[in-house]
Amino acid sequence: MKYPTVLNQLMEHFRKIPGVGQKTAERYALHILTHFDPETTDAFAQTLHQLNASIRPCPTCGFLTDQEVCDICRDTTRDEAQLIVVEEVKDVIVFENTHTFNGRYHVLGGALSPSEGIAPEDLNIESLKTRVQAGNIQEMIVATNFSEAGETTALYLQHIFQDHPVELTRIGYGLPAGGNISYADEITLNKAIEGRRKMH
């Protein structure tokens, strides 16, 4: 016995979401059908519909926006001299939540990994060059992940901006807040030693 076609289609859509399997998709779909009132379901559908129509990447920095340029790029109180370069859109939110950084961002849209078919032309690197060439940026803080692809990307940025008058810095890596040294893994500790600071 099978569910009606539309319900099956809905489940198939849910299954495309990371972390959602057959059972969860079934639960989501049935929940909408049986627990949502028709207005809620309509509003849900409307929202999904608007998603592609109204949201697009900011042409300047690659963050998401429903305007011409994003809120961060439009905000004139922000420091134009500092730029944090991240892999993903969600990384911007993470830095924003710290409330300590008042510069701007650039979202690459991934990290370099030839074996996964991600080459420089697949990332927002041209737009980054354009921004740097405009001349206001003094420091570029490279905040790609501490993964092989993230490290390769950081070094690649260093390579292409070596002749530009912009200072490149790499965010520090090491122990997490509240971290206990005796529980840290070897790689993290090695990185923490490499990135040690002078105390006086």
């Binding site: 030839p114 074996s115 390769t152 690649y156």
Partner: peptide, 23 residues
């Protein structure tokens, strides 16, 4: 990654000048 990059770049000259390959 390096082996994939060798296959992705079409000429030897381009490979020699490829920044990602150098990294």
């Amino acid at each position: 990654d390096r082996n994939h990059r060798i296959k992705q770049v079409s000429t030897l000259e381009a490979l020699k000048n490829d920044g990602l390959f150098q990294i």
